[in-house]
Structures are given as C-alpha cells and as structure tokens.
C-alpha cells in the first residue's frame, strides 16, 4: 500500500465533502492579521528600534509584549488563530541571551514540537513563525514581519482554526 493510500485510509475517506472551506478566495480588501508575541527584553526592544530608526514594516502585525519567550504558551497561538489571526509570530532573545538565562531554551524545545504539532492539525506551517530577534536587530524584525506578511497574503485568510458557535 502506498503512503498516500494509507493516508487516505487513516483519514477515513478524507475525499468526502470537506467541512473546511479551503479554497474560498479572500474577500476584497482583506489584509493579513498577524499576532506577534514579543519578549520584553529583546524582540520588543528590536521592534522599538525598528520604529525609532524609521525602518518601514507592514502594519499587519499586532505586537503583544510578554516577559519572555518562555511565557508564550502554545495555547496562546492556537487561541490567536481561533480568534481571527491569519499568522502568528513568536519571537524572543537569541539562545544564550535570555534575560532570565534559560527561558528561551525551554521555549525552543517547546516550539520545535509545537510548530510540528500545529501543522499536524492542519494549519499551514508558514502561518506560525518562530524567530530569535535581539534588541539590536530592528532591521531583522522589520524583515521578518515583511516576509511573514507576504507569505500569509499569498496563503489567504486562515480558516482552519476559527471560533465557532
């Protein structure tokens, strides 16, 4: 049995009518909505540097400041998607630079696993981005947001994990 046949079997006739509107085109005037979880000590400062340096980046990101990347529970990511995010950026200090010494190392293990798990549930992997962005990397923050916005613009609205009634 080929991998695909097995997959179809595992998915229990996934070829039947799909309950997920996958290929619906984006409504006119749609703009990607991105939630960015930024650690207070590095990425938030990096975003601030991008601003004070007048580096342009798309206004599609809404930054939520958290104490540490270790604080960013993967449930936050799932909930952000459910509440209408088209993409999520998780960002913190580079390994070795954590203000709390080890928070980002734990976050790294967690997100190595969580990115794969969220992808397994059917969210396109491009929609969840994890990046180390330091306080001096204003340009990297701007570039990351720009690339993420473009990737998500190409994918269209996120409809896999949505708040339902």
């Amino acid at each position: 049995m080929s991998v695909n046949e097995k997959a179809a079997q595992a998915a229990g006739a996934a070829t039947g009518p799909s309950t997920v509107a996958a290929a619906t085109p984006a409504p006119e005037g749609w703009e990607p909505k991105i939630i960015g979880f930024a650690c207070n000590w590095c990425t938030y400062a990096g975003a601030d540097l991008a601003g004070t340096s007048r580096i342009q980046y798309p206004p599609n990101i809404r930054v939520i400041r958290v104490p540490c990347s270790g604080r960013i529970n993967p449930q936050f990511v799932v909930r952000a998607f459910q509440r209408g995010a088209d993409g999520v950026l998780v960002a913190g200090c580079h390994p070795g630079d954590c203000h709390y010494s080890t928070g980002n190392y734990f976050a790294r293990r967690r997100y190595l696993l969580a990115t794969r798990f969220i992808e397994y549930l059917g969210v396109e992997p491009e929609r969840l981005e994890v990046r180390w962005i330091s306080g001096s990397e204003g340009q990297k923050f701007a570039d990351t947001v720009r690339e993420l916005t473009e990737k998500i613009r190409a994918l269209g609205p996120q409809r896999r994990l949505r708040e339902t009634l």
Partner: peptide, 17 residues
Amino acid sequence: EAMENLPPAEKAAYWTR
C-alpha cells in the same frame, strides 16, 4: 507519517471531523 504527508486542508478536515 501518512497523516503528516496529507495536504493541510485534508488534515484540517480530518481533525475537524
């Protein structure tokens, strides 16, 4: 592995079901 190799839309449809 078979599940992982499905396209995202089918994975989502499967888990939604």
